[in-house]
C-alpha cells in the first residue's frame, strides 16, 4: 500500500509511471508501424499479416486489454499531473518568457489529447468500421483494400497526417524526457537518450505518413 501511494500518489512516482507506460506505447507504435509498412509489400503480404494477428484470438484480446490498461494509466496520470501543475500557479505571469522549454514539451497535453481523439477515430475507422462508408464497403478480411479505400479521401488522409505530426511531436519530447523521469542521466548515455526522442519521432512520422500520402499519390493501389 505504501509503495502504491509512493508511486501513484506522488508526482515523482506518477511521472515514472507515465514515462514507463509512454515507452511501452512507443514500443507498440513502432511495432504497429513495422506491420503497417507491409502495405508496401502488396495486398497478399499485408492481408496475411492482418489475418495472422486476428488468428491469435484470445492472446490478441489480452494484448488489447493490456494496451488499453497502459493507455488509461498513461492518459489518466498525465492528466492528473497536468491539473496539479495548473493548480500550482493560479496567478499567471503578465509577461512570461520561455528560455529553454521546447515547443514540443509545452504542448504535450494538446498533442496528447489530439492523439486521443485520433485513436478513437482510428478505431472507429478501421477496427469497428463505423466511421466511413467507403471503408465499410470493403469486406473486413481485405484490410489492404480498407486502407486504400480509407486513405483515398484527402480529408481523412490529411487528418491522419496531422495526427502523425502530433504523435511525432509528442514522442520527440516524451521519449527523451522519459529517461530523465526514470533517473537515467549520465554524460555517456545522454548523447543517445537525448537524440532518441527526435529520431523515433522522425521515423514514426515519415513511416506512418508515407501510407496515406502514397495512397493519395497513387503509388499504392
Amino acid at each position: 500500500m505504501a509503495l502504491c501511494d509512493r508511486i501513484i500518489g506522488n508526482g515523482v512516482g506518477a511521472k515514472a509511471v507515465v514515462a514507463i507506460t509512454g515507452l511501452m506505447l512507443t514500443g507498440f507504435v513502432m511495432a504497429h508501424l513495422s506491420g503497417n509498412l507491409l502495405v508496401f509489400a502488396g495486398p497478399e503480404a499485408f492481408n496475411k499479416y492482418a489475418a495472422g494477428l486476428k488468428s491469435l484470438g484470445g492472446i490478441l484480446w489480452v494484448a488489447r486489454l493490456g494496451l488499453l490498461g497502459i493507455f488509461i494509466l498513461h492518459l489518466g496520470l498525465a492528466i492528473r499531473l497536468n491539473l496539479e501543475n495548473k493548480a500550482a500557479r493560479p496567478q499567471k505571469y503578465v509577461n512570461e518568457a520561455t528560455m529553454e522549454a521546447t515547443f514540443a514539451s509545452r504542448y504535450m497535453v494538446q498533442t496528447g489529447l489530439l492523439l486521443f481523439a485520433f485513436i478513437i477515430y482510428h478505431l472507429a475507422h478501421y477496427t469497428f468500421r463505423v466511421a466511413s462508408d467507403d471503408v465499410n464497403a470493403v469486406p473486413a478480411e481485405d484490410v489492404y483494400g480498407m486502407v486504400i479505400a480509407g486513405f483515398s479521401n484527402p480529408i481523412v488522409s490529411g487528418f491522419y497526417v496531422l495526427a502523425m505530426a502530433a504523435l511525432a511531436m509528442h514522442l520527440k519530447h516524451g521519449v527523451s524526457s522519459a529517461f530523465q523521469s526514470l533517473g537515467i542521466y549520465h554524460p555517456n548515455l545522454n548523447v543517445v537518450t537525448q537524440k532518441l526522442g527526435p529520431i523515433i519521432a522522425a521515423i514514426v512520422f515519415v513511416g506512418f505518413a508515407s501510407i496515406p500520402v502514397s495512397v493519395l499519390m497513387g503509388c499504392i493501389k
Binding site: N10, G11, V12, A14, K15, L81, E84, N85, K86, A87, A88, R89, T98, M99, E100, A101, T102, S105, R106, M108, H173, S177, Q180, S181
Partner: peptide
C-alpha cells in the same frame, strides 16, 4: 518529496526552464 507535494507545488515535466 512528500513535503514538496504537500506545499502545493507542481510536477517536473523535464523542460529545464529551472536550469
Amino acid at each position: 518529496v512528500d513535503q514538496m507535494k504537500k506545499e502545493g507545488f507542481g510536477n517536473c515535466t523535464n523542460q529545464y526552464e529551472c536550469e
